[in-house]
Every structure is written in structure tokens, then in C-alpha cells.
Design a protein around this nucleic acid. Sequence first.
DNA 1: TGCCAGGCCGGGT
DNA 2: ACCCGGCATGGC
Length: 223
Amino acid sequence: MGRTTPRSDLLRMYDDLLAAYGPQQWWPADTPTEVVIGAVLTQNTAWTNVEKAIASLRKAGALDLPHIAALDEAELAALIRSAGTFRIKARRLQALARWVVDEHGGDLTRALSGPTAEVRQRLLQLHGVGPETADAILLYAGNHPVFVVDAYARRVLRRHGLLTDAAAYDVVQAYFEQRLPRDAQLFNEYHALLVEVGKRHCRAVARCTGCPLAHWPHNEANT
DNA sequence: TGCCAGGCCGGGT
DNA sequence: ACCCGGCATGGC
């Protein structure tokens, strides 16, 4: 009686990260269109390479979905070359762009509107859109409250023993979503903070000195 | 200089 | 239902 509910481990971890790094204001893109393009381009790719590709698209005046849908596939591939796996990504970008253009008149906001589960299912049907890409689009372009699971989220949780071995995407996502309030802004910041701490401290060569999670239980075996 | 990065697909067991 | 090779540039 009268006692407050203790914050979950995940919320306390969030507090630690936020205190250390402050609000991240993610996704690093100016518009929803750039979010969806970046979400595809960053698949298994360093963001620095994605930035170059987006700059290339902008310079060519092709940084919008109708242009991408209409471009010759080889031309598009050339524009996004610096993102790596560019032939594959050209095809994937066009699948996404043509969905928005053909089924929603080029209106991305409209394409992403509706019940979260339904939009997610539709995104997952598109060639080149898997769970992480779909969720990044839903959260960062559509403001849907879904938790984005990426390599960093996995690494951080595994390293601190909150997650045992390699769990499936949906399992990790459920882990977050069942322990956090369903709040798009929180999911947004949390994912960004996990990327930040992951980049700084949980890469292949772990640098734990100065890590804001240093006082959390540590699993040396898992990096 | 090799290894790796904010995955996903397609084919094989 | 998993497992694996392929995709490819730029940075460390």
C-alpha cells in the first residue's frame, strides 16, 4: 500500500542512457521520405555510407519516392553506389517507392496510416522490407509505437544478460514492448540511445571504460 | 589489410 | 523451422 511501482530494469537502463547522452532526436533524416530511403540503404551498412548515397540522390534531384519509382533501375543503383549492395538496394527502394506511388498516389503519410499491425503486415510483404526495416519506417516515418530491434539492441541486451542467446526478432521486440509503456517517443529515444551506447562501447572490440551501463551486470562471454 | 557495418532474400536441409 | 551464402562500398 502506498508504494510506487518500481521502474523496470529496462526503464532504469533508459534513465542511465538518457542521463549520459541526452535526447537523441532520431532518426537522422529530415523528412519521412528520407527515413524510408535511409531505412533500406542502411541494411547491413554503416550510416556514413548511407549519408553519401542520400547526398547523391539529393544532388540528382531524386530524393523522393515518385522519382525513385520512375528511375531506371541501373541509374538508381549508380546513384546509391556508396551505400553498398547497391543493385539489391535499388530493387528494394523501387519496390517500396512503387508501393507508395501505385497504391497511395505517392502520399507516404497516407501509405503509413491505419492500424499499426495492418501497415506492418503490408510493409513486410514488400520485397526487401524485413522486420527491422518495417519497424524503423513505422516508428520514424509513421510515428507508430513499435520498438525497433537492431544489432545494437541485441548486443547491448545480450552483453548485460537481459537476453540470453540469439533470440528471434519478434522475441526481442516483445521483450521491450511488454516492459515499456507503449509510447512512440519513448521507443524512438530508446532505440537511438541503444545505438549510441552500442557504437561507443559494444562494438567488436568492447570499450567498457566510461560506459553508462558499466554498473549493470556484465556478461563477459557475449560481446 | 582484412574485417565489419543500424538486413534481407533465396535456396537448401 | 532453421542455416547459409551472397550482396558491396568505405572506414578503421
